[in-house]
Nucleic acid binder design. Structure first.
Lengths: 218, 218
DNA sequence: ATTTTTATTTAGATAGGTCTAAAAAATAAG
DNA sequence: CTTATTTTTTAGACCTATCTAAATAAAAAT
């Protein structure tokens, strides 16, 4: 039996190390879990014990194939529930995260299969992140952050890095949503702020925004 | 903060004592929770401490007004999720219980309000049990068990006492569902079995079935 | 009214997840 | 290449929810 806490640690390792393959430091994991390094160490040992994680003392942690499957399954559930909340229950994209964090731990294969069908097999969640299929496979989008986008280029918004309420509200307030076309007018070398155009309207955004907004070429 | 386990104990007290008002014995509670009397005692103390339960040593336990509200809220969520599972996700009435037991603990007022609206404000769950409203109020149906029904009387099935998979499958196999009209042809004094008629078809049912099937007069 | 039985409570132990404080290893600095 | 700093691990403790075994109270029986 896998506990709720174990699932959350596995998910955190998956997100910190790219797809769980890269090795994650104890401190980084502890910080992500809002806990202390000693607690993280204990849990890492347990996950290694149960064969969800690879671990050598002082060497950080990564996920085993089995651990990755667990992570992908949780992510699949999380993102499907997010789609449900937004499409069917009138949640906005900044309201879904906390609830989905709870719903993702519900255990029932039939539930998630039926939910998937009920939502018409969505491929992306409300933040533009891809939804893994039953086998943990999902399309990888060739996305770049706005900060890495080319001056003069034309892009489409495909996702966000930061899903915090504050950031998502900021985007809403500035009419930036998934699918919005964004032109990169000027990248300021001094403070790394960026001037962009949305539907012809010009907007100045900070480096922080640039790093948290994902685009694909248009 | 109320824990998952506390919620489950409160729910059990509510169901064992009629609406939580009647006093429930430690042993009965322990049995319902599939645990031992000593564990039940510990939890009862904690619930009393937190003002969810009334408790005097050796005198059993009942719910306070606050405890009852908690119970009704959980029941409301449980039953709304059951409706969702059956109406939207193709679950049958014998498949919903375990999943609803998990879903009932999700914390989000908006979620439950929106779900209620999405389901078009249902008043009863798939087993015929009434769904409390936001304030814990719900219609009380004047129901009797088949065992207590009058010989020669005509009734409508309005609910079940036992929601186990076995019993619900038995009902399905014999074409008994919510709303099915049932005539009581003969009550056998010897073994308390009952001969009934469903759509003109005759059926012999045992005392156990009689006690677990709820009817209202027609 | 005493004894026996049953129900309930207490005491002490265990497991999961957390913490603080201290020890050990790895890394950085001089 | 030592010393200082940071990171990680260990040791010991706490809290929740559980258990077993023993003690106590209540109920039933003689």
């Amino acid at each position: 039996m896998i506990t709720l806490t174990e699932e959350n640690y596995i998910k955190a390792i998956f997100h910190l190390g790219k797809q769980g393959s890269a090795t994650v430091s104890t401190n980084a994991l502890a910080e992500a879990m809002h806990t202390k390094a000693s607690s993280a160490t204990d849990m890492i040992k347990k996950l290694a014990e149960k064969n969800y994680a690879n671990y050598k003392k002082y060497q950080g942690v990564s996920l085993t194939a089995e651990g990755k499957l667990v992570a992908l399954n949780i992510i699949r559930k999380h993102r499907l529930w997010e789609v449900f909340l937004v499409d069917k229950l009138n949640f906005t994209w900044d309201q879904v995260h906390d609830v989905a964090e709870q719903l993702e731990h519900i255990k029932s294969q039939k539930l998630i299969d039926e939910l998937d069908a009920f939502l018409d097999f969505p491929t992306h969640d409300p933040h533009g992140d891809p939804i893994p299929d039953k086998h943990g496979k999902f399309e990888h989008v060739e996305k770049t952050s706005l900060s890495n986008a080319k001056e003069g280029g034309s892009y489409v918004c495909v996702g966000v890095n930061d899903s915090s309420v504050d950031f998502l509200k900021y985007l809403d307030n500035n009419d930036i949503a998934l699918g919005t076309t964004i032109k990169v007018l000027h990248k300021e070398p001094f403070d790394h702020s960026i001037k962009i155009a949305i539907d012809g309207r010009e907007l100045m955004v900070s480096q922080v925004v640039g790093k948290n907004l994902y685009l694909k070429e248009n």
